[in-house]
Design a protein around this nucleic acid. Structure first.
Length: 184
DNA sequence: TAAGTGATCTCT
DNA sequence: GAGATCACTTAA
């Protein structure tokens, strides 16, 4: 077996707390091209992540946790590698993965993966709701991340302002904390 | 462009 | 308890 072939058959690597316990902007960028894996019954859905947004701690006025710890935002204050799932606009669930050290409330909103565009469509498609809130990203919880050794060129990553956060004021709403992966 | 929809948070 | 707000989607 050639070395090349060996590399191809390498088992996918699950992303652990170690991956997520870094600065949220770094993790957000690294998360592009990684796979979000959902297990529903016997069915497994694996989607490459194509769009994320970073929410960076107490100073970030767009981050829910900037207004202090509340029952809703509590998961963001925990260690990295857990989900923060919340309900918005009376209809939609939003999926975030918590990053950074414990007590530093930062998280990444998964906005798009695979052919699914839009954070609420993604959670609807993957049947994600409050039951996953504060859970760790593990196969036994039915939702986790994998590195499938897909190489992402830096030039394919685009940074832009986050969506729907004008309430955060000009400084924070204009931060280029949205990362998108260009197609092809 | 605006309505739908309900949890959450900030006032009383 | 009331009122405002909201990291969106869909139908016009």
């Amino acid at each position: 077996m050639s070395l090349q072939h060996k590399a191809q058959v390498k088992r996918p690597q699950r992303l652990t707390a170690r991956f997520f316990n870094r600065h949220v902007l770094k993790v957000a960028e690294d998360l592009l091209g990684k796979y979000l894996i959902r297990k529903i019954g016997r069915k497994i859905i694996a989607l490459p992540i194509t769009e994320v947004e970073a929410y960076d701690g107490p100073r970030d006025k767009a981050c829910h946790a900037s207004r202090g710890k509340t029952p809703r935002t509590e998961p963001m204050f925990g260690p990295g590698g857990r989900f923060y799932v919340y309900f918005c606009y009376g209809i939609h669930w939003m999926l975030n993965i918590v990053t950074g050290p414990k007590n530093y409330p930062s998280a990444i909103l998964i906005r798009a993966a695979g052919h699914i565009n839009g954070p609420a469509k993604l959670t609807r498609y993957l049947k994600i709701n409050k039951s996953l809130n504060a859970k760790e990203a593990l196969p036994e919880n039915g939702l986790w991340f994998e590195d499938r050794a897909v190489r992402i060129k830096k030039s394919k990553i685009k940074k832009s302002p986050r969506i729907g956060v004008s309430y955060a004021g000009p400084v924070w709403s204009e931060k280029p904390y949205r990362f998108t992966l260009s197609p092809e």
